[in-house]
Simulated scan of single mutants.
Amino acid sequence: MSIAMLEKQIKTGDFANLYIIYGDEDYLKSYYCKKITDKAVTNFESFNLQRFDGIPDMAQLAAAVNNLPLMSAKKCVVLRDTDLKGMKAGDWKELQNIITSLPPECILIFHFDSVKVNAKKDERFKKLLSLAKGNGLAVQIDSPSKDDIIKFLAKRAQKNSCSIDRPTAEYIFETCGEGLNNLACEMDKICAFAGGGKITKEHVDAVAIKPMTSSIYDLARAVSSGKLGVAMGIIDELFYRKEEPVIILSALSGAFCDLYRAKAAAVSGQGQTSIVNDFNYRGREFRVRNAMRDAARLDLGFLEQCLKLLMQADLKIKSARADKRTVLEELVVEISKAGAGRKNASY
């Protein structure tokens, strides 16, 4: 079911008995769970709103569901991160009985936050979805589109008595990452620094913290340009932030895969759309755009050499004897040396 249906029910107060909120976008999942409880529970929240984390005690859950609300038309029971696969068979059977006999005054909400579910493969989750078909609503909330994120940033700026134009909002999106939780925090910080008025790129650069993925793309640009000092500085920053070396290497490999795909596409006469469709970059088109820009000055043979060096580093870094930082620094030196002064070959 769509988010539009959920928003309509929240607006009208015509709630279902059962909600299943799941998907990749943590901020929006929490946001809509709160919207339901805020609208439905009108009095005595301490009594009419009960929460359970993990696998609940079935007797306590049954009592919470069946107790009448106090001076409120509805009461809400929220189950956060219930691991359906980890439940005992008897508890799973009892949970289904509770769901199928929900009193009309109760709204039961399954909020799958950090527990990930698969609607195609998880048999118990598929059964839960089927139970929502009667008087329930299952909503999958995944990462929003770039346009939706830009609108979100504009609204967040307005909420903080600021304004932002689209290019600056796109810069924040590309600089600070994709998760709305993270973007909301960064936008609030940028607005506080700006002190009202229009947000500029300078405000973003002054206070925004780049996620590891953004720093990795800076690292890839530095090493491929032969800027060894800049590259080592980024390595220092990543280790200062206690990023895992294996994850750094994995992300760097991903960045060079982006560059290789972009260059290969350009050599074969293909464009951005082809890469997005062939390698599923939907919602991450900026990565393709940036890769095509950066790959224009590089030759295919150099990028092939980089991928070989990355593969060798991957084998080394996973060795029990290897000093992981040394492996990364040696890799940066090798790629930087290979890239220094290299001319773009014509194909």
Rank of each mutant, 00 (worst) to 15 (best):
Q312G: 06
S130I: 02
E285Q: 05
R124M: 03
V65D: 05
A73T: 09
K189N: 06
L307F: 00
Y240K: 02
S214E: 09
M5V: 15
I209R: 09
K318L: 13
L137T: 04
S163T: 14
L303A: 02
I21S: 00
K318F: 08
F52Q: 01
P144S: 15
S253C: 06
S346W: 14
K151D: 13
R80K: 14
K116S: 10
S268T: 15
D188T: 13
I317H: 03
Q9K: 12
K146Q: 04
E94R: 10
I98A: 07
K85M: 08
G283T: 07
D205I: 02
I98G: 12
I247C: 12
D142E: 11
V207P: 00
A154Q: 10
V115A: 04
A63E: 07
A322F: 08
S250N: 13
N66R: 15
T37N: 15
Y32Q: 07
A231H: 03
K127D: 02
E94W: 08
K133I: 03
I98K: 07
D299L: 00
A291T: 10
A208F: 10
F193I: 10
G233S: 10
P103N: 10
V246P: 00
N181R: 12
T168N: 00
D83R: 03
S336I: 01
V139Y: 02
C306W: 02
I199T: 13
I172D: 00
V267L: 11
R284K: 15
H203C: 01
E334V: 08
G283D: 05
R282A: 11
I317K: 07
S46T: 15
E304R: 11
D14E: 14
A265H: 00
V139K: 10
L129D: 01
G254P: 01
K121R: 09
K8V: 12
G90Y: 11
G196A: 15
A16E: 07
F193Y: 12
